[in-house]
């Protein structure tokens, strides 16, 4: 198991799962989000290549209403 920080919250996940697998787990649509991995933006094509490890920090954002 690996402990990561997702959008500021600590969660425990299986070791060696990719960002793509994590997104699937949370049923998130790739097209409507953007991902930042340890402070660096991850291109969509690299979601399946990026594997999560202990202490990683992940930010997943989307568009909301705003002025």
């Amino acid at each position: 198991m690996a402990k990561i920080q997702l959008n500021g919250k600590k969660i425990t996940i299986k070791t060696n799962i990719s960002i793509l697998e994590l997104l699937k787990k949370y049923k998130l649509n790739n097209k409507k989000i953007a991902v930042e991995y340890n402070g660096t933006i991850v291109q969509k094509i690299n979601y399946k290549k990026k594997f999560l490890k202990n202490k990683d920090k992940l930010e997943i954002v989307h568009f909301i209403g705003g002025g």
């Binding site: 997702l6 500021g8 949370y26 409507k32 997943i60 909301i64 209403g65």
Partner: peptide, 24 residues
């Protein structure tokens, strides 16, 4: 329309999102 960028609500998957109502 202007929109803001914010963290997605991971825990509440059923919560409606803007793009469901305003097609980009």
């Amino acid at each position: 329309v202007t929109v803001a960028v914010r963290r997605i609500n991971i825990l509440d998957k059923k919560k409606p999102i803007l793009t469901d109502y305003l097609n980009p």
